[in-house]
């Protein structure tokens, strides 16, 4: 009985501290800002996974909290945001890609969007590399690069938080790494947490895909002897991490499934770097 009492006490104590730190988080929507005559500095491109997928929504929320805590003048496109077209183009359906891409570009050009941050490497790659050919020219940042910049500028403090001394390994997203050569930004965020960054053998340029890219996320695997996410998860848990850090909503889903498949979900957390930063700060 006494033990329970203590737990309750510490829980409520924890609760009070959180209450103090909690702020009212806001998500400004572009059309509303325009109606009020305001202009955001950046657009937070949420992406379909970030909007609709339950797991990815938590990443969206974590990143939104960070933006709020730092008083970033941002907005989302909200219901005006459409899929970038990445899965359609990669599956081979150029018509669907073009329809979505042109629609998005028209929306953003109308609003005079200059700078975009996104938590999805697929959206990042498509908007950054493929939209310019269609008349969509923006400064596009993946949130790992953005967070790295905030940490480097001293605007965001993450050291000494919940992940201090934790074993964290990072799974490279293909569309961040090989496709766009962003290998260090997510790693520098992890290192800033005072965490123990453990590299697995197949990382950076040789990192194995999680299995979701190129439209695979949305269909059954072709016949084979193993699922790609299982192969990748096995490589990742080999180094006994406390956390597998990811920077892509699709990798997140695939590796989370892989960890569950290995029955390791109690030992290994799969977290996006935005979640790491938010949790380190108890946002």
């Amino acid at each position: 009985m006494g033990k329970n009492k203590i737990n309750q006490l510490s829980l409520s104590h924890h609760f009070i501290i959180n209450q103090i730190k909690t702020m009212q988080y806001k998500v400004p929507v572009m059309s509303d800002l325009v109606a009020e005559g305001k202009t955001p500095d950046v657009i937070f491109w949420v992406g379909c996974a970030g909007s609709f997928d339950q797991r990815a929504q938590r990443v969206t929320i974590a990143f939104t909290k960070i933006l709020n805590q730092l008083n970033i003048n941002f907005a989302v496109l909200g219901t005006e945001e459409a899929c970038t077209g990445d899965p359609a183009r990669r599956a081979g359906n150029e018509f669907v890609f073009q329809m979505l891409a042109q629609q998005n570009i028209a929306t953003m050009n109308t609003y005079g969007v200059k700078k975009i941050i996104t938590t999805c490497p697929h959206c990042f790659n498509t908007i950054k590399n493929e939209y310019p050919a269609l008349g969509g020219n923006y400064e596009v940042l993946h949130h790992s690069t953005y967070l790295q910049g905030l940490i480097n500028d001293g605007k965001l403090k993450v050291e000494g938080g919940a992940f201090k001394g934790k074993r964290i390994t990072y799974h490279d997203s293909c569309y961040l790494g090989r496709a766009n050569e962003i290998y260090e930004a997510p790693r520098s965020v992890i290192e800033a947490l005072d965490a123990d960054l453990i590299e697995i053998n197949k990382c950076r340029t040789t990192g194995l895909c999680c299995g979701a890219g190129g439209g695979q996320m949305f269909k059954e695997d072709e016949p084979g002897n193993k699922r790609i996410n299982v192969e990748r998860t096995e490589q990742l848990i080999e180094v006994y991490p406390d956390v597998i850090a990811v920077a892509c909503p699709f990798c997140n889903t695939m590796i989370t499934d892989g960890v569950k498949g290995e029955n390791k979900q109690d030992d290994v957390k799969v977290l996006d770097i935005a979640e790491l930063v938010a949790q380190a700060n108890s946002y």
Partner: peptide
């Protein structure tokens, strides 16, 4: 405008959480 069968009007539902 999304690979899943969600209505575009639900794109901001995550903000409720």
């Amino acid at each position: 405008q999304a690979p899943w069968q969600f209505s575009p009007s639900d794109r901001l539902n995550w903000t409720e959480e």
